[in-house]
């Protein structure tokens, strides 16, 4: 068998093998660095602090939504609602302010709206045993309808002047670091600790991997399934608040354009995980970072927006191909 020969051969050229390993394992990151270098050469301001923080601020909007989708992927489902939640949250804040409520009250209301979306999906999936795809597309459909309904068919709600605290969420800084980046770091770390370090995250992964085995280990499976979707909505809610602060208005259906980035990034994390297709926080963050970087680089180079979309699609495809080749390479190595 050829596999036996391979095993003998591997001992002989260890160094070249190590280099190959490194290249293959880091290929996606190496490629990403390559893209950054190209952008940096084409435009000198690409690597400026301001621009980098710009990219990260954009990530801070998409990443929370992507984390939400990632949570759904962990319990082997899918969440199509992040865009809707983001849109509804924005409309609630701006609508509340327009109706004369204080910013604080509107913010709380928007969190409640996000929580309500989360509770609905959670109940549909964990109590009514609905297929997550059907459940979340149903919520998406109703959510979109509400967004259009309350805005008389899609008229944005502008608030002018926008309240200072709302402004501060996106534009303020703490110790010179923009607030959204701080929020991003906090939410990333919290989720990382929750998923990778805490018993609750462990149990959530277990529920996703095997419903029966988790139940037989005394884990309340329905609770964890529900929690995943609830937290997903809360995550999207955070993204929605940052977005609302950025655009200072409530735009119906605005979340839609973030939805695909979010879903794409979450799926990318599964193919980039070291453990068998496991959705993970940093992979998801990396996914959103790639998308934001490409979008930013293209904008700097003055390329029309539609090429950005095209490039995003292409880049996901390239990453997919690379990961497939990586998997093949690894398979050959193990045999």
């Amino acid at each position: 068998m050829s596999s036996l020969k391979n095993n003998v051969l591997t001992d002989e050229n260890k160094i070249s093998k190590k280099i190959a390993d490194l290249l293959v394992n880091g290929s996606i990151v190496i490629g990403f660095i390559g893209v950054i270098i190209v952008f940096a050469i084409k435009n000198s301001s690409f690597l400026s602090i301001d621009n980098i923080s710009d990219i990260l601020m954009r990530v801070s909007i998409t990443a929370p939504a992507a984390f939400g989708v990632m949570l759904a992927l962990i319990v082997k489902g899918i969440d199509l609602t992040p865009g809707t939640t983001m849109g509804l949250v924005g409309l609630t804040i701006t609508g509340g302010i327009t109706a004369g409520l204080s910013f604080g009250v509107s913010l709380v209301l928007s969190l409640l709206v996000g929580a309500l979306v989360g509770i609905c999906t959670a109940l549909l999936i964990s109590k009514a045993n609905l297929n997550p795809f059907i459940a979340t597309i149903a919520i998406l459909f109703i959510g979109n309808s509400i967004e259009k309904g309350v805005t008389q068919g899609g008229l944005p709600i502008y608030i002018y002047p926008s309240p200072k605290p709302l402004n501060a969420i996106y534009r303020g800084t703490i110790l010179g670091i923009p607030n959204p980046i701080i929020i991003l770091i906090i939410i990333t770390l919290v989720l990382y600790v929750f998923l990778d370090k805490s018993e609750y995250g462990r149990k959530m992964y277990a529920c996703g991997e095997s419903i029966k085995a988790s139940r037989a280990s005394g884990i309340p499976v329905r609770f964890y399934f529900g929690m995943a979707y609830f937290l997903a909505a809360i995550c999207a809610c955070v993204g929605g608040i940052i977005l609302c602060s950025q655009i200072r208005s409530g735009q119906p259906l605005v979340g839609h354009s973030y939805m695909w980035d979010a879903i794409g990034a979450a799926y990318l994390s599964t193919i980039m995980s070291r453990r068998n297709f496991r959705p993970n926080v940093f992979g998801t963050l990396f996914g959103t970072l790639v998308m934001a970087t490409v979008a930013n680089g293209f904008t700097l180079m003055g390329i029309p927006f539609y090429w950005k979309e095209f490039a995003k699609g292409l880049i996901i495809l390239v990453i997919l191909m690379v990961s497939v080749m990586k998997k093949r390479y690894e398979r050959r190595k193990t045999f």
Binding site: G264, Y267, I271, P304, Y306, W307, G313
Partner: peptide, 22 residues
């Protein structure tokens, strides 16, 4: 290549939507 259908077609969707408008 056995890539997840969702991931694949989100990518081709973005690419074709972009190309369409390009």
């Amino acid at each position: 290549l056995k890539i997840h259908p969702w991931l694949t077609t989100i990518a081709t969707m973005l690419a074709t939507l972009g190309l369409e408008k390009a």
